[in-house]
C-alpha cells in the first residue's frame, strides 16, 4: 500500500448552524487519482475546499476534527495557510485565467514566491505548460492574452498555472464540467499523466469520468462519506445499497 497523503478523522464542517460534513474519515493515498462523487449538495466540493483551506474565505464556516496532510494537521494554529496552498494547489470548475498574457498567468505563482530571474521563469513556464499538455498549442504566442484561448485551453492553462507553483497535491473541482467532449478527454488524459508526479483529488458529477480516470472513488451523500474504495470495486460491486443506487442512476 502506498503512503497516505491526506488523512482525515472525524471531521465535521458547519455553515453557521447547518451541518455540511458529518464525521468524515478518509485516507487518500499519494500519487493516485481519487474521485469524489455524489449528488449536488452532498458536501464533496466543500470537503475538497477544506483540504487547502479555501473554506476559510467563507464566513461562518466551522471545522472540527483532524485533517492531516503528510501527518501535519493543516488546521493547527501555527499553520501558514499561504504555504499550505502552495503545497496543495487547486483547479476550479470555471476556468479563471487572469487578464494577463499566457506567460504571465503561469509565471504568477513563481513570481509571488520571489522568482524574478527571467531565465528561471522561462524554464518553469515551459515545464508547467508541457506538463499541462498545452505547450505545443501556445509556445508561439506566450505573450498573447490568456483570454483569447478556448475554454479547454484556458482550463489547461489554469492547470499549468497551478503546476508552476510545484504543488504535491492538486485538487480539482469539476474541472471539465464546463467543457466540450474533446476538451474533456484532453483534460482526462492529462489527469492520468499527472498522477505520476502529483496526488490528484477530483470532484466530478460525471460518473463515467470517475470510472475512467480514478484509482479510488469516494461516494458522498448528504454530508456523509458513504463508501470509499478502489474505483473498480465501487463501480462493479459496491458494499452499500446507496452507492449502488447512485451509480446505477436510481437517484441523484
Amino acid at each position: 500500500m502506498t503512503h497516505e497523503k491526506i488523512y482525515t478523522e472525524n471531521m465535521f464542517l458547519h455553515y453557521g448552524s447547518k451541518m455540511a460534513l458529518n464525521d468524515i474519515s478518509i485516507q487518500i493515498p499519494e500519487k493516485k487519482v481519487t474521485a469524489f462523487i455524489g449528488p449536488s449538495g452532498c458536501g464533496k466540493s466543500t470537503f475538497l475546499r477544506s483540504l487547502n483551506r479555501m473554506n476559510d474565505l467563507i464566513d461562518g464556516v466551522k471545522i472540527e476534527g483532524k485533517i492531516l496532510i503528510d501527518n501535519i494537521n493543516i488546521y493547527d494554529k501555527n499553520i501558514d495557510v499561504v504555504t499550505l496552498r502552495k503545497k496543495v494547489g487547486m483547479v476550479f470548475q470555471k476556468s479563471n485565467p487572469f487578464a494577463k498574457s499566457i506567460y504571465e498567468n503561469v509565471a504568477y505563482g513563481p513570481r509571488i514566491n520571489g522568482i524574478n530571474d527571467r531565465k528561471q521563469l522561462d524554464e518553469i513556464v515551459e515545464t508547467a505548460l508541457k506538463n499541462a499538455a498545452i505547450w505545443e498549442e501556445v509556445k508561439d504566442r506566450l505573450g498573447d492574452s490568456a483570454m483569447g484561448l478556448s475554454g479547454g485551453q484556458q482550463q489547461r492553462l489554469c492547470i499549468a498555472r497551478t503546476l508552476a507553483v510545484n504543488p504535491e497535491i492538486v485538487l480539482m473541482d469539476e474541472p471539465a464540467s464546463a467543457l466540450d467532449p474533446l476538451s474533456t478527454s484532453k483534460i482526462e488524459e492529462l489527469i492520468v499523466q499527472l498522477k505520476e508526479k502529483y496526488t490528484i483529488v477530483i470532484v466530478t458529477h460525471n460518473m463515467q469520468q470517475a470510472a475512467r480516470i480514478s484509482d479510488l472513488t469516494a461516494f458522498f451523500y448528504l454530508g456523509e462519506l458513504i463508501e470509499f474504495d478502489k474505483t473498480k470495486k465501487i463501480f462493479t460491486n459496491p458494499e452499500k445499497k446507496q452507492t449502488e443506487d447512485y451509480i446505477t442512476g436510481r437517484f441523484g
Binding site: 479555501m54 474565505l57 496552498r85 479563471n96 487572469f98 504568477y108 497551478t162
Partner: peptide, 18 residues
C-alpha cells in the same frame, strides 16, 4: 473583478495583499 480571480490567486499561495 470576479471572485474567481481572487480565489485563483489565493489558491496559488498568494497572500491577500499580493
Amino acid at each position: 473583478v470576479p471572485r474567481e480571480l481572487r480565489a485563483a490567486s489565493l489558491a496559488l499561495g498568494a497572500t491577500k495583499w499580493q
